[in-house]
């Protein structure tokens, strides 16, 4: 397991995204809100002629309170043919995964277990490897309310 990983802070935790999934990191410009969409969708924003769906990762995880400050930069990922911009607390670094994703005894907690593939060891410490489609699907309860 020597994949490149993009290290990011989400909701105060260190997470890792497969670098292959991350198309770019952009400065977030103006976000056009999308009325009546699930609340974890912050809106849409333009990247060149493309429209990106902006996902607030904290809310997508199921955390209701917005206790963490977010970065002005966002990671652009492509899932299922659509492009998303992920709002995270901070984008830290690129690191090499040094282990296969592993479960930890006791799990990661209900919010995290849904989106985490497992824990990976990296040079800058352990991180949760995020399953992007699960993250973008958003928390079931909130998604259903929309």
């Amino acid at each position: 397991m020597n994949d490149l990983l993009v290290m990011a802070q989400i909701a105060g935790r260190r997470c890792a995204l497969q670098a292959g999934d991350v198309k770019s990191v952009i400065e977030l410009g103006a976000i056009t809100p999308v009325p009546r969409s699930p609340i974890f969708i912050a809106g849409i924003t333009a990247l060149r002629s493309q429209a990106l769906t902006v996902i607030d990762c904290r809310i997508a995880l199921g955390f209701r309170e917005i206790a963490w400050a977010t970065d002005h930069r966002a990671a652009v990922v492509a899932v299922g043919g659509y492009s998303y911009a992920l709002i995270v607390d901070a984008i830290e670094d690129i690191a090499t995964g040094q282990s296969t994703p592993d479960k930890v005894p006791g799990g990661f907690g209900s919010e995290w277990s849904r989106v985490a593939t497992g824990m990976v060891e990296t040079a800058i410490g352990p991180a949760l490897l995020i399953d992007l489609p699960a993250l973008i699907a958003g928390p079931e309860t909130i998604g259903a309310a929309a």
């Binding site: 056009t32 849409i44 333009a46 769906t53 659509y82 973008i136």
Partner: peptide, 24 residues
């Protein structure tokens, strides 16, 4: 331009487009 499925689910939108000033 197409919209992500989570947005389409609201049933209000058929897509997105960019205005001349680049605003979606």
């Amino acid at each position: 331009k197409p919209l992500a499925p989570a947005v389409m689910k609201s049933g209000l939108y058929a897509g997105s487009t960019l205005l001349d000033d680049g605003q979606p």
